[in-house]
Design a protein around this nucleic acid. Sequence first.
DNA 1: TGGCTTATCGCAACCAGTCGCAATAGTGAT
DNA 2: ATCACTATTGCGACTGGTTGCGATAAGCCA
Lengths: 142, 142
Amino acid sequence: MSNELDDRLRASGKRMTVQRRLVMDALQRARHHVTAEDIATRIRARHPQIDPSTVYRNLGALEELGYVTHTHFDDRVTRWHRADAQRHGHLVCRTCGAEQELPIGLLEPLARRLRDDHGFRADLAHSAIVGICKTCSNVSSD
Amino acid sequence: MSNELDDRLRASGKRMTVQRRLVMDALQRARHHVTAEDIATRIRARHPQIDPSTVYRNLGALEELGYVTHTHFDDRVTRWHRADAQRHGHLVCRTCGAEQELPIGLLEPLARRLRDDHGFRADLAHSAIVGICKTCSNVSSD
DNA sequence: TGGCTTATCGCAACCAGTCGCAATAGTGAT
DNA sequence: ATCACTATTGCGACTGGTTGCGATAAGCCA
């Protein structure tokens, strides 16, 4: 009963453990970006013996394999999601905290410019872009 | 013996304390981006009774007044610098950690686009742009 | 100068996340 | 099915940073 994830894990010298499977399952079920803390809490509700540090380490391992990705928002927690979800950027308002997704295409011209001018292959989806959203902009200019 | 910083502090209901002054002085002397930890260590070398948390709180207070700014790098460490320094973006390589400054003008087209299309006033200097630098790119494609 | 208000301080506890270590348990080979 | 190898685990200590709290001291007015 091995599947593709099992095989790719083994192919890279990694192993499939119950803990790893639980982290993967939790990410499958989570529709949106979740924190490692969220995942740990969810898993520990049923399997309290699983240590949070194991969850962190597994997120890292699954990321190495390209199964999951993380994004930094403006607060200091990292959020995780499956890598097969559509890539997109993030806007987050520093005043009200509102978050907004952004088609990745909008960031493409800058990425191209950085690649052409600096030889730098940028991952513009990795960190949210912070600023002031339209609503907060209007309020403060009254 | 009050100066402009004193006045602006008081005008906003804040106070000038020795701790605050020491943080400001440390930032004046630091040419580049420094971590809060750096500043705390430097100050505590002479004034060991000053708590690190006080340094963090003062950086925040000075930021509210527009005297200092912070930038997030990829290691999640926050670095601080005086706000009067020239604004610029940052590239950081996720493989070798190399950092590179970037003229802010390069980011301007994206900022304009976000403002026009989404009413979002982006601060593109706030988070470093992570990716793979030219050198690491060449190595991995050998 | 002395007194009042309250911003700020030092401290200790806490939060998100990382790391070293000895014990455990996947994995491939026999 | 067993074995040896070593990736992974749970645990506890630690890091950079934040927060609640009672004590201290700026700033303002008399």
